[in-house]
């Protein structure tokens, strides 16, 4: 649910990065934070445990520039990936405008990817959303690892609906901005449709 402010001429949208534990959701946000001009970003907040596992969410406010005189702001959130934080994940999906599913390319994490994707669909449905109707892109992270599964296999398993997809190495930034741009474009396109 985007927030359109005609008075201050701003559009505010919420994008959520979803995926299994340790797939690199927080790393995506950290890379975006590090590579964005100071004037275009706010403070990045990470509610994490002492071992840097996300406890509740990470939050990064970004300002992308103006569109037809409206300043566009995107609020990026990640969810905690670990299975037992499901209650927190549901909360973060409230009011979502766009979703990035961040998959872990490692073959050993295929089950975790599938479980997380199922969980995303279920939790969205509980909030009254249908993943197939939301602006949604898939990222396959950790493509640089030797045990990364072949793209064809990942694609077949994690992207049966053929949404835009991106290969990524979030620690180096590969694919990070491509993913963000793609989902942001879809969100703005949806906003146009809905108006």
């Amino acid at each position: 649910m985007s927030f359109i402010n005609y008075s201050s001429r701003e559009i505010n949208c919420k994008i959520v990065y979803y995926g299994p534990g340790l797939c690199g959701k927080t790393t995506n946000l950290q890379y975006i934070y590090n590579k964005t001009n100071p004037e275009a970003k706010g403070k990045m907040i990470s509610l994490a445990t002492e071992t840097e596992r996300t406890l509740f969410f990470d939050f990064l406010p970004l300002s992308l520039g103006e569109i037809r005189g409206f300043r566009t702001r995107f609020h990026l959130y990640t969810v905690p990936g670990q299975v037992f934080y499901d209650a927190s994940r549901k909360l973060i999906l409230k009011g979502v405008d766009g979703v990035v599913f961040c998959g872990d390319s490692q073959i050993e994490r295929m089950e975790a990817n599938i479980e997380s994707l199922d969980n995303l669909r279920t939790n969205l449905a509980e909030q009254g959303y249908d993943l197939d109707k939301l602006p949604y892109v898939v990222q396959y992270n950790k493509r640089d690892l030797p045990n990364a599964a072949p793209m064809a296999e990942l694609e077949e398993t994690l992207n049966p609906t053929k949404v835009p997809q991106f290969e990524a190495v979030a620690t180096k930034g590969n694919g990070v901005f491509d993913t963000l741009k793609a989902v942001a474009k879809l969100v703005l396109t949806e906003l146009r449709k809905g108006s």
Binding site: F3, K14, G42, K43, F59, P61, H75, L91, I92, K94
Partner: peptide, 27 residues
């Protein structure tokens, strides 16, 4: 807004990080 968007403010807000406060409060 319950989704974490700041809508309006009054008083001494110059030194507050309203965006972060809004997101964390909504959380």
């Amino acid at each position: 807004d319950k989704n974490g968007q700041a809508i309006a403010q009054g008083g001494e807000v110059e030194h507050l990080d309203v965006t972060s406060l809004s997101s964390l409060t909504a959380g």
